[in-house]
């Protein structure tokens, strides 16, 4: 069998990835738990758990509810804080032979700046700015639902670091392309989308929401077509590269997302039922590249031929 491994390599926002498959922030912790299943070096990269200026406790449980074709979560950015991450998790991750992406969040613009400044002094490969977490009361999605908010946070992070900066967008907006343009205009090197869609699940026996937070972020196959549509819209609206995510659970989904315009992709909720999902997706994409005589898988990016209207 021919080795198609090298056909998956991609330069994304100036960073070399051996393949375009990355476990998504929040679904993969800081990677340690999944080393039980495979060496992290097989992955294109890792987007680590969203990290804030200070340690956060997160929301009250229950924090998860299964829905048709998906799940809601309301973790609320539980994390040990940026100093702990830099001291205890990053050095370990950097020995793993894969691209490490720090996912950062904050309640205030100042908190985003503080975290970005601290990471700028480290050997982190890339920063993903989360302006779209639907589960925290202050900050988070509040910045991501307006062009002004997205611009403000992108600008402040841009000034704080020279690291490649990827802004993670919320789907809970009227026009996601406008938000992407606002991030691009303030110096984002890339955008990633979509974060979760705000949803709710009610227990009909108790007439109470399953989630103690009442509402939470929907992910899983249920959101996939929405994510494909938004990635397509955004990749047509900006010049910076797009990282696509939202409900990807198999290599066919990954290929579809890339055809919509994503150069790289992230896998989140699929990990819960199948921890091997990223590895299976990489294998599937390698076979696809080989079977279709591609020199590089990037040839399919944005290749969707839409019908004329």
């Amino acid at each position: 069998m021919t080795d198609n491994t090298s056909k998956l390599s991609v330069n994304f926002a100036g960073v070399e990835f051996k393949n375009p498959v990355i476990p998504a922030s929040g679904a993969f912790g800081y990677g340690r738990e999944y080393e039980n299943f495979y060496p992290l070096s097989v992955l294109g990269g890792i987007s680590v758990k969203g990290t804030t200026g200070q340690r956060r406790n997160g929301n009250k449980p229950p924090r998860i509810a299964e829905t048709s074709g998906g799940m809601l979560n309301s973790v609320g950015l539980q994390n040990p804080g940026i100093d702990y991450f830099i001291e205890n998790e990053l050095p370990y991750l950097k020995t793993k032979g894969t691209v490490i992406i720090a996912n950062i969040a904050g309640s205030t613009a100042g908190e985003y700046r503080e975290v970005a400044e601290k990471l700028d002094k480290t050997d982190i490969d890339m920063i993903e700015v989360n302006i779209s977490c639907p589960n925290v009361k202050a900050g988070g999605a509040a910045f991501g639902i307006s062009c002004e908010g997205a611009a403000e946070i992108t600008k402040i992070c841009r000034a704080a670091t020279k690291k490649p900066l990827m802004v993670k967008l919320s789907p809970n907006v009227t026009n996601i392309a406008d938000i992407a343009r606002a991030a691009e205009a303030e110096g984002a090197d890339a955008v990633s989308l979509i974060n979760t869609l705000l949803g709710m699940k009610i227990d009909i026996k108790t007439r109470r929401p399953i989630l103690k937070n009442n509402v939470g972020g929907l992910s899983g196959p249920a959101v996939f077509p929405v994510a494909v549509r938004m990635v397509w819209q955004v990749s047509n609206a900006v010049k910076i590269p797009v990282c696509g995510m939202g409900g990807i659970s198999c290599w066919e989904d990954a290929a579809e997302m890339m055809m919509a315009g994503a150069k790289i992709i992230q896998v989140g909720a699929a990990l819960f039922s199948n921890p091997m999902a990223p590895v299976e997706i990489i294998k599937g994409l390698e076979n696809y590249a080989g079977d279709n005589n591609l020199n590089n898988l990037q040839e399919i990016v944005g290749s969707v031929k839409v019908w004329e209207q």
Partner: peptide, 17 residues
Amino acid sequence: EERMGCGVGACLVCACK
């Protein structure tokens, strides 16, 4: 017991105070 996601300690949903 708590509603659980990944089961391995990564997703942080099965919180207990």
